[in-house]
Design a protein around this nucleic acid. Structure first.
Lengths: 107, 107
DNA sequence: GATAAACTGAGCCAGACGGCTAAATGTCTT
DNA sequence: AAGACATTTAGCCGTCTGGCTCAGTTTATC
């Protein structure tokens, strides 16, 4: 799914994950968020853009400031993909672990 | 965490997620895996490299073929990060949802 | 021992990324 | 009306990415 591409990609950057952390304290303006990160504002705004295009945050221009907040349910597709993976993945690797253990046992 | 960078980045590409899907059927050689994807083999091998550096798969040269398999527990850090997020994220957005609902109610 | 198979390595290319600065825009505040 | 403030736009830069081809290298197979 193309949306998963954008989600995983947005999450692959430490600055962007930090922004999500910050926003858990509640909504904040772009500038206030950016002050915590050691880069020029235009660079920082790009990260906000990536997060918004991925659907992870929602922003709204209010007067001369832009307010940002976490987007409800944005992580659901990620969570769903992960759950689906673990279904067969861990089951399989548990079988593998069992096999290895068995194998070790008889050497 | 630097490892999360590599994990999320590896997962942000549809070809790479497809490879993980394929490997749930069990280990396979690089060539066999690549046959299912419409690109030249060297290009495909790069994807395997990304997955391996992220710790998502393990590979081993056997004779002239390279065998690939899912790495046990590789998704645990992702899963943990996600669980941590949902802890405050969904809690917050549920409060938000409740607030919105309340607000709607009184219009 | 020659030939085929299965990678592997080198190197090219266009475009995306993550940073920057400098200037422009729109919105308060006085 | 002027000045300060909070972005926003534009454009530059070096690196990384994801694709390609072409030429090795190593290992079966006949």
């Amino acid at each position: 799914m193309a949306n998963l591409d954008r989600l995983f990609n947005a999450l692959s950057d430490p600055t962007r994950r930090a922004i999500l952390q910050d926003l858990r304290r509640g909504p904040a303006t772009a500038g206030a968020l950016g002050a915590a990160h050691p880069m020029a504002l235009p660079s920082f705004m790009k990260h906000l853009g990536v997060l918004e295009r991925a659907g992870l945050i929602e922003t709204e221009k209010q007067g001369r400031t832009r307010s940002c907040r976490l987007a409800p349910g944005a992580l659901v597709p990620v969570s769903a993909w992960l759950a689906d993976q673990r279904l067969l993945w861990e089951e399989r690797t548990e079988r593998l672990a069992a096999f290895v253990e068995n194998h070790e046992e008889r050497r």
